[in-house]
Amino acid sequence: MESFAFSHQLLQFMVTGLTVGAIYAMVAIGFNIIYNVTEVLNLAQGEFVMLGGLVMVFIHVSLGLPLVIAFAATVLVVTVVGVLLDRLAIRPVRQPTVMALIIATVAASMIIKGGAMLIWGKNPYDLPAFSGREPIVVGGLVLQSQYLWVIGFLVIIAIALALFFNRTILGKAMRACADNGDAARLVGINVRQMVLLAFGVSAAIGAVAGITLTPIALMDYDRGAMLAIKGFAAAILGGLGSFPGAILGGVILGLIESFGAGFLMSGYKDAYALIVLLLVLFVRPSGILGSMAVARFKRF
């Protein structure tokens, strides 16, 4: 009986870990899209997630628009914020050293976070789950249906991105910019537009993460920084710039966090991902699927 309870608990932690991991994977994918095209690490990535949640609460709950419309409107709003971020904070930097760009994204994240606090205050907000809060019971395992939505959206995003980057001209142009910006410019690709697109797509994915996360974990103005750094940890763990790596890294990180909080000390829940990040950075900065040789060409 006891071993049954234990393995049962194990499964439960695994499901939670997978769900949280899917969110980290989405943030990591967002990091990668912008990093690949611009070599900027957008520290405001977590703010997109936070905005996604809070804007959705506003449109869906406060304005009362139906789920699907609210979802689309929220993604649109956050995408616009992402585009504005590039236009107003990143592109104007006159001496675009790595340090100046990092500081610019930190500044932008403070402005977004502060703005969200002015609009929504400091209280956390809840969002109704997409298909109700009635838990699904599978073989004694209690599942929240929202978990499946989160994992489902990660799968949809992954398939959509794979099609976009491999099958469309626009996606291929973006990959060209990621490989070599100067060469891309020479063959007539508008690199500035691609950068703008990267920020837009990245923000949209962040918004989806926020919208799907809020019914599980609530959302408040202050959540962005932690989500950003955990998403970054996932991106690094998988190998910065690699999309399969982002998903792998996110899932591993989610599982580590879930098991760590469950079996070790729950107070250190937020620390596990960060310790993993430090270890990976110190031991193998190129991550699991990243290549050292390619990493050297990048400016870091």
Binding site: L41, V98, M99, I102, M226, I229, F232, A233, I236, M265, G267, Y268, D270, A271, L274, I275, L277, L278, L281, F282, P285, R299, F300
Partner: peptide, 28 residues
């Protein structure tokens, strides 16, 4: 010693993570 072998973004994130970990220790 290990962190300063990293550059730019990686160093920024390593120090950021370190700062948050220490703060969590103070709290816990």
């Amino acid at each position: 010693t290990p962190a300063l072998k990293l550059k730019g973004h990686y160093l920024a994130m390593a120090t950021l993570a370190f700062g948050i970990i220490v703060n969590i220790v103070f709290r816990e």
